[in-house]
Amino acid sequence: MSRLRVINLGLPKSGTTTLARALRKAGLHVADHRIKPVQTDDAALHGRFVGEMMYDGYFLRGDPLHGLDVFDGFAEINALRPPRSIWPQFDFGLLAAIRACHPGTRFLATWRRPEEIADSMLRWSNLGTERLPAADIPGLPAGYGVTTRERETWIAGHYAALDRYFAGCDEFLRIDVADGAAPARIGAFLGRDLPWWGKTNVNPVRAAQEDDSA
């Protein structure tokens, strides 16, 4: 049986941290956004962004998972820390390379309603107010993402593109993290029970920020 590898193609604030914890509780070694020293003894990986390493492997070796053998799963693969704006989940050439180099890889896409993700992005630190609008992101060029409508359109477009790309493929599952059946569906998809499911990295309660919703 081939090794189980799991890659989440969901966007920030779509339930990525919940998925990371659930996969770890299921016994998988998971990287989430940026590799921490506690996750590996390889000092060369400490502090590296998962998405950055995927592009290094893709362009230098033809294998986006090169150098990431220690990990079974990847719960959030984008990086948005200026000057970096790295979004492998939008790159179908890179995804095709993963599928070619690692047959059987399971692709998830954590999902919430676009309006919920857009609102959560707005309330999470400066993600929606500064970092998204300032960055060049696939489908969201610099200067866009300021309004709720722009973020929702971008979010919905991403998941629609994933649905089209993986249409008819049994190696992809878009999962509503609010669905009570989510852990059972993910477990069946991966062939591994998830002993935990809940909420983590929840936005702090704060006064609503101004946002031009037009």
Rank of each mutant, 00 (worst) to 15 (best):
R24I: 06
M53F: 04
R3C: 00
K25D: 03
D163R: 15
I137T: 02
F107G: 03
V202K: 00
V38Y: 12
R84L: 14
G51K: 03
W87H: 15
R3M: 01
S125M: 11
P103L: 08
G180N: 07
T200D: 09
W154A: 10
T18N: 14
I86E: 07
A26E: 08
L19W: 08
H46L: 11
F74L: 08
G73I: 08
Y55H: 02
Y55P: 01
G104N: 06
E116M: 11
A79S: 15
F166N: 04
I35W: 14
A109L: 06
L173I: 02
G15D: 09
V38S: 13
E52M: 05
H102G: 09
A118P: 02
L65C: 10
L108G: 05
G168E: 00
F74G: 05
T200F: 13
C101K: 14
I186W: 01
Y144R: 13
P88Q: 08
G27T: 04
M53V: 06
S2R: 02
A134Y: 01
G128M: 14
A161M: 07
T129V: 14
M1A: 02
T105P: 00
A135Q: 01
R99F: 00
F71M: 05
A97V: 02
Y55K: 03
R185N: 03
Y55F: 15
W154M: 06
P37S: 07
I7S: 10
I77N: 12
A26L: 14
F90D: 06
P195L: 07
L9A: 06
G180C: 04
R123I: 01
L11A: 12
D119L: 10
S2K: 12
A184S: 07
H33K: 13
K199A: 03
C101W: 00
P83F: 10
H29A: 07
D170V: 01
L194P: 06
V50A: 12
G145M: 14
N78I: 00
D176A: 08
R21D: 12
W111Y: 15
D176V: 11
L140S: 10
D119A: 15
V6S: 06
D119K: 09
F90A: 14
H46I: 10
T18Y: 09
K36C: 06
E150N: 10
H66W: 15
C169S: 10
P133R: 08
A182L: 05
L162R: 00
R48K: 13
R174Y: 05
F172M: 07
A208C: 02
Y165K: 00
S85G: 05
A178I: 04
L45Q: 12
G47Q: 11
P37Y: 12
A134G: 05
Y58S: 10
G67N: 13
D211F: 02
G145E: 13
D56S: 02
A178D: 09
G93V: 00
I98V: 15
D32L: 13
Y144I: 00
S125V: 11
V205L: 04
R81N: 11
V177N: 03
G51A: 10
